[in-house]
Amino acid sequence: MPSPKQMEKLAKSMGNQPAKESPFGPQDEMPEEYWRSVLDDTPADAKSLGRAAGLRLSELSQHVLRVSCRRCDRIVEIQKADAVRLYGQQAGWKEVAQRLLDNTCQNRTGRHQEDGCWPAFGPV
């Protein structure tokens, strides 16, 4: 492993400027751009599953639809044909999944903010 001086010398010989020290240390405040990018970023699992959640029932290719609750770990499955019969072809999968979980929710506290299940959409 080359030493830092050797690495700088190699970088200079290739025409690149050596990397400068980071202006931020562990005790320094993080820049605004960092927090903005963290808050605006969508998690990887939400990116892939969010597409299915935004589709209508008629646009889904699976025959069995599954939604689970992130809160109580309950899983509800419904056949696509039954979901179309109950809610219609133009119903959004996200709304149907939330209704399926809410209809059988067992975590009731009486407080609106805490009641109900938290859907997590997944492949079958």
Score class of each variant (00 low, 15 high):
Ile75Asn: 07
Ala120Gln: 15
Arg51Ala: 14
Arg51Cys: 08
Cys105Lys: 03
Trp118Pro: 05
Pro4Cys: 03
Lys12Asn: 04
Glu32His: 09
Pro43Gln: 02
Glu114Cys: 09
His112Gln: 14
Asp73Gln: 15
Leu100Pro: 01
Asn103Met: 11
Met14Tyr: 12
Ala44Phe: 11
Lys94Asp: 06
Ala81Arg: 08
Tyr34Ser: 10
Ser68Ala: 12
Ser48Gln: 15
Val96His: 00
Cys69Tyr: 02
Lys80Gln: 10
Ala44Lys: 15
Glu33Ser: 13
Leu39Cys: 14
Ala91Ser: 03
Lys47Glu: 11
Val96Phe: 03
Arg99Phe: 04
Cys69Asn: 02
Asn16Val: 09
Thr109Ile: 02
Ile78Phe: 02
Gln79Met: 09
Pro2Trp: 14
Ser37Pro: 03
Leu86Ile: 05
Gln6Arg: 05
Gly92Asp: 01
Asp115Leu: 03
Ser48Phe: 14
Gln6Leu: 06
Arg111Gln: 13
Glu8Val: 02
Ala97Val: 00
Pro43Asp: 07
Glu95Met: 04
Lys20Tyr: 03
Gly122Tyr: 06
Gly25Leu: 08
Gly25Asp: 14
Arg108Ala: 07
Ala81Ser: 11
Gln17Leu: 11
Ala44Thr: 14
Ala97Pro: 01
Arg70Pro: 08
Asp41Gln: 12
Tyr87Ala: 00
Arg108Gln: 06
Asp28Gln: 09
Glu59Trp: 00
Arg66Gly: 03
Gln113Pro: 07
Leu101Thr: 01
Gln62His: 09
Lys20Val: 02
Ile78Leu: 05
Pro43Leu: 04
Glu21Gln: 15
Gln90Arg: 02
Cys72Leu: 01
Asn16Ile: 12
Gln17Ala: 06
Ser22Arg: 14
Glu32Asp: 12
Ala91Val: 01
Gln27Ala: 12
Arg70Ile: 10
Ser68His: 07
Asp102Asn: 10
Trp118Phe: 12
Gly54Trp: 03
Cys72Asn: 01
Val64Asn: 08
Asp82Leu: 08
Gly54Arg: 02
Arg66Lys: 11
Met7Leu: 14
Thr104His: 05
Glu77Val: 07
Leu57Phe: 00
Val124Asp: 08
Arg74Cys: 04
Ala46Gln: 14
Leu55Arg: 05
Lys12His: 04
Leu65Pro: 02
Leu49Ala: 13
Ile75Asp: 07
Ser3Trp: 06
Arg85His: 11
Tyr34Phe: 13
Leu49Pro: 03
Ala81Met: 05
Met7Gly: 09
Trp118Leu: 08
Met30Glu: 10
Arg36Lys: 14
Ile78Trp: 02
Thr109Cys: 04
Pro18His: 09
Ala120Leu: 10
Tyr87Leu: 01
Asp41Phe: 10
Ser13Leu: 13
Met1Cys: 06
Arg56Lys: 12
Gly116Thr: 05
Ser3Arg: 13
Pro26Phe: 14
Gly15Thr: 00
Ala46Tyr: 12
Thr104Pro: 03
Val64Ser: 06
